[in-house]
Design a binder for these strands. Structure first.
Lengths: 117, 117
DNA sequence: TCTTTCGATCGACGGTTGCCGATGGATCGG
DNA sequence: CCGATCCATCGGCAACCGTCGATCGAAAGA
């Protein structure tokens, strides 16, 4: 992986103790960090995390009218959370007549999962 | 896993199409979702994600004075991010004289990583 | 056409976040 | 002691977030 951030070892130190002898390297560049953090941010809400949990375990498309009664929030709030997950590229939706069916985009969490492991 | 959220299938539907026939089950209860989302939220910032990346890859304790020049932010801001990671239970610090050394708490990300996989 | 239903969007509100400069507390050298 | 260094905290600011009620557009039935 490429290194995006530079490393500037400290020179001034009041004592002779070794402060900056071990050099650290970031393995994730800024753009990759932005993408991964966007996914993490989308998962950083309990309701959205449970939404992903439901959609993933179901392994299919789930109607919004099924998701609403699962959580103690108003319908516009749920729609807002689903939009956040859509904007993060984690889920997508499909309209069938009057209903909207949501599903987790296959492989959308792979990069983040790989970084975390 | 225990199911915390109740499932209330919809009864009224204008057409005969199957809307809520497939029943969905959440596998994560509310408390677990809160813990996992707190970890995800802490990782939901590019700088914090890179911080974790550096600390994890280094496999040891890293002095703050080494972390400051890696990012284009002021020192109080870095300290703020480190506090967020500490509050989330992901990292911890250890003072040695004048310096503070940070490290990733072993196993702190295991639950989240397991849920994601 | 009129009504009902579903889902998205809007507008508004309190609370939180990320960022900075300034300051403080602790530690060490001189 | 005094000054320098490292790091945490404080106060403030603009931006964002989660939430709701109200509303809208699309679709289907009567």
């Amino acid at each position: 992986m490429s290194v995006d951030l530079e490393l500037a070892p400290k020179t001034k130190r009041p004592a002779g103790e070794p402060c900056c002898t071990p050099v650290v390297y970031p393995d994730v560049d800024r753009e990759q960090a932005l993408r991964l953090a966007a996914v993490a941010k989308a998962l950083g809400d309990p309701i959205r995390l449970q939404l992903i949990d439901v959609l993933r375990k179901h392994a299919g498309k789930v109607c919004v009218c099924e998701l609403v009664p699962l959580f103690d929030i108003a319908q516009p709030t749920l729609s807002h959370h689903l939009k956040k997950l859509r904007d993060a590229g984690i889920v997508d939706s499909e309209r069938q007549g009057l209903w909207a069916y949501y599903y987790v985009i296959p492989g959308a969490l792979d990069d983040f999962s790989a970084w975390l492991s």
